[in-house]
Computed example of a mutant assay.
Amino acid sequence: MEAFLTSTVTVALAEIGDKTQLLSLLLVAKYRKKTAIIVGILAATLINHFISAWFGQWAVAWLPEAYASLVVAVSFIVIGLWVLIPDKLDDDEANCGGYGAFVATFILFFLAEIGDKTQVATVVLGAQYASVFWVTLGTTVGMLLANVPVVMLGDKIMRHVPLHIVRYCAAAVFIVLGLIGVWWSF
């Protein structure tokens, strides 16, 4: 249960102000099919984050045990610093031709997550916990918690949420967790 809760909170925080939230706004503006967009986000995230969590678990098996917890802790600090950098949605990522809302969302979300901070966080969480299932489920729920309100309420939320303050708080959480992990590693 700890893997699920930590994964949920970690990705929900990392996702604030992320390019996939901007992508959610763009998709709603273009297609206006909220259910198809949400299902596309769900499907893309499940597949992408399953692969990422599995990779994290596989990779940590190759690290000496003495270094694994330190690598995970430092990774949290790096992700915290990365959260401070605002994301921009590239025009190339926002173009998906004439596909319907579900297919466009699935493809764009899957591609946008490759190398993204939430994917890196999922790899780290996969390395930290022994359960690919709970990490994948938690990170997917975190992604949905961050993006479904954007899909449902769109620009109404974006006008009232001071993203820079939320981004600083999210970064602080990651950095503090990383520092605690570094402390426990020694």
Rank of each mutant, 00 (worst) to 15 (best):
L137E: 06
V150I: 14
V141Q: 03
W134V: 05
F109I: 12
L137I: 11
A146H: 00
Q128A: 13
N147L: 07
F133S: 14
A121C: 08
F110T: 06
F110V: 09
V150W: 01
Q128C: 02
G115W: 08
V148E: 01
F109Y: 14
T136I: 04
V135M: 06
S131M: 08
G126F: 05
K117L: 07
G126R: 04
W134H: 12
E113M: 13
V124K: 00
L144A: 11
A112M: 10
G126E: 06
T140P: 00
A146R: 00
G126V: 07
V135E: 00
I114V: 15
T118D: 10
T122S: 14
P149Q: 10
L108I: 15
V150Q: 02
L137G: 08
L137Y: 09
Q119L: 12
M143C: 10
V150M: 07
A130I: 15
Y129K: 08
L125E: 08
F133R: 13
T136C: 10
T122K: 06
G138K: 03
K117H: 11
L144D: 11
V150S: 02
I107S: 14
Q119P: 12
M143H: 01
G115I: 10
W134C: 06
G138V: 03
A130R: 15
D116C: 13
D116E: 12
A121I: 03
G115K: 07
I107H: 14
V124S: 08
P149G: 07
V150R: 00
I107R: 15
V135Y: 01
A146N: 02
A130L: 15
Q128W: 11
A127V: 04
T139A: 02
V135T: 09
F106Q: 04
Y129P: 04
L137Q: 05
F133I: 15
V123G: 01
Q119A: 11
I114H: 10
A121S: 14
V123H: 06
V132F: 08
Q119V: 11
A127M: 11
G138A: 10
G115Q: 12
T118E: 13
L125A: 07
A130P: 14
V120G: 13
V135P: 01
Q128E: 14
G115A: 13
L137R: 08
D116W: 12
L145E: 07
N147F: 00
V132P: 09
W134Y: 15
T122H: 04
L125P: 04
P149N: 08
T118L: 05
M143F: 03
G115N: 12
L145P: 07
M143K: 03
L108R: 15
V151L: 10
V123A: 07
E113H: 13
F133H: 14
L108A: 15
G126S: 09
S131R: 05
G115R: 09
V141K: 02
T122F: 00
V135K: 00
T139C: 10
T139S: 11
V148W: 03
G115E: 13
F110K: 00
L125F: 08
T118Y: 06
G138S: 12
T140M: 11
L125D: 05
V135N: 04
W134K: 12
F110A: 07
W134D: 04
A121N: 06
F106W: 09
G138P: 06
T136A: 08
L111C: 09
S131D: 14
V150C: 00
Q119D: 09
V148Y: 04
K117M: 11
S131V: 05
V151P: 03
V123N: 02
P149I: 06
T139Y: 02
